[in-house]
């Protein structure tokens, strides 16, 4: 037998409360805004992890070996992919720039245009995205595997702080190696420009170099380096957070890696916008 309906048939549908249940405005608001509060909480957790990791940087023991291992993983290990992507980014951008500039017969500006794009934008952002795909995903997977196989707990049983042992070296290595890789990207990108502009399109090298020298300022490279430093900070924090906070099994390890790559990539692009705004104030663009 079914229970008689509380409202007469035909009355407009209204959310019904179970018997004895009362409507609490605060609880309702909590449910409505829970995605927002959840996002704020996760952001807060990232900041706490970053803060703890930086605090542990200055407390002994200092395990230099771990720092060098991570620098090798993030930097040296990423060198081939950075060089490959850097070369083709420079070459493709130069190709497009030459096509556009040829409308005004000003192909000689290609070095300046692509050089400044690489220095200020393409190199730091592409470096961050490439290293996130390679090293950030690796960090998240490794830490997540360590978490689910209780290796992180095992560290704690030996009175070793997991943040100091696992997160701090990855954070420092990322902050140091992303700027280095950013410069490698710039150099290799300019080689790509050279190959397209000088070798393929026979644009005068002297003019290209002269305009590049006048137009591209060391400040442009410094901006790129500052950006790369913050992107490294972002990547290591997101990857380590996702890795250390995994629960479950192999499927969750995969999901944690995906979340690490997606959250880092999105954060890098959003952060890029705000860093540009800040640096436009700090280092006003002079142009040619």
């Amino acid at each position: 037998m079914t229970e008689p309906s509380a409202s007469p048939a035909g009355e407009s549908a209204k959310p019904e409360l179970a018997p004895g249940q009362q409507f609490h405005p605060l609880a309702f608001a909590g449910r409505v805004f829970s995605p927002l509060t959840g996002a704020v909480a996760i952001f807060g957790d990232h900041i706490i992890l970053l803060g703890r990791s930086l605090a542990w940087l200055f407390r002994p023991p200092f395990r230099l070996r771990l720092f060098f291992e991570q620098m090798e993983f993030v930097g040296v290990g990423s060198l081939p992919i950075i060089m490959l992507v850097g070369f083709f980014t420079g070459a493709v951008t130069a190709l497009q720039a030459i096509l556009a500039l040829s409308l005004f017969e000003q192909q000689r500006y290609v070095g300046f245009g692509v050089g400044i794009s690489l220095a200020r934008e393409l190199a730091p952002v592409f470096t961050a995205l490439m290293i996130t795909a390679r090293a950030g995903s690796g960090m998240a997977t490794e830490l997540a595997s360590m978490r689910i196989t209780e290796q992180v707990d095992a560290l704690t049983t030996f009175a070793v702080n997991p943040v100091q042992y696992l997160v701090t070296p990855r954070l420092v290595a990322s902050c140091l190696m992303l700027p280095v890789m950013n410069m490698v990207f710039n150099v290799v990108g300019l080689i790509g420009v050279y190959v397209v502009a000088i070798v393929s399109y026979h644009i005068d090298l002297g003019q290209v170099l002269e305009l590049f020298r006048h137009g591209v300022d060391p400040i442009d490279y410094i901006e790129g380096l500052i950006k790369a430093f913050f992107f490294g900070l972002t990547m290591a924090t997101c990857a380590c957070y996702q890795g250390l906070n995994v629960r479950g099994g192999a499927k969750e390890v995969g999901l944690a890696t995906t979340r690490a790559v997606v959250s880092t990539s999105v954060t890098v692009l959003v952060l890029d916008y705000f860093l540009i705004q800040i640096m436009n104030v700090l280092f006003p663009y002079g142009g040619l």
């Binding site: 595997s145 360590m146 196989t149 209780e150 290796q151 095992a154 030996f158």
Partner: peptide, 15 residues
């Protein structure tokens, strides 16, 4: 914690 040693279910050796 130095008074303790722990043997984990699946050993938890460092890979």
């Amino acid at each position: 914690q130095r008074k303790f040693g722990m043997v984990f279910q699946y050993a938890a050796l460092f890979d």
